[in-house]
Amino acid sequence: MKSFWFIKSISSCILIALVVSCAPHTYKKASVTTVYEQPIQSYFFSKDSVHYFKTSIDTYGKSLSGILAVRRLNVDTLKVSFFTEVGVTFFDAIVTHDSYQLIRCIPQLDSKGVMNTIIEDIRWVVLFNLNQLTDPVLIKTSDPAPIVRSNYQDVFIFTELSKDNLPLLVTYVYGSKFKSKFDIRYDSFENSIPNKIFVRHYNIDLKIDLTAISFSQ
């Protein structure tokens, strides 16, 4: 009987742990305080027009790695190129805030679902859509870093900010349950520039790790 109680307790603990770990990431209980009036800053394109990232993509047990190059043509347009370390191109694309055009793409990546996701992630990684955010409000939190909720199309973007108003964590939140679709974490700062960027998706098995690199010319 004693051992039955013990097994039952252990099972309950495991079950609770599973439920907690499987609970969807949600901002449903986040309550807003005041309008946030300071503009959110960006790490990218102020000094350099092109940024390069050593990039690895892991999805459902498969991996892809290469170099991601992102050039800002103007405030509304990016050129994006992704190629292997050895130099074979995966895809080239022209990206705007709400659309993109594939200039070329290997057959294995050339599907709407795959490319929509990759392009959307790239837009947020380089904070290309910051000027598309509206109605920023401060979230009530015990965390010293301010968290700002902004509207973007029909979703919310939650941004945890540094004291310089630079994003530390960007979370894309959708639906009435305020579920996180993905988040982007900026890390390993050097001269206030993130050397590492981590993208994590919650509704699909997809993670992207980027390391900033600089090519000598």
Binding site: A69, R71, S81, D92, Q217
Partner: peptide, 15 residues
């Protein structure tokens, strides 16, 4: 020394 031309990006990258 590897030089990759990126005509689309108007760049060359060297590794």
């Amino acid at each position: 020394v590897q030089e990759k031309s990126l005509s689309f990006m108007a760049q060359k990258v060297i590794s």
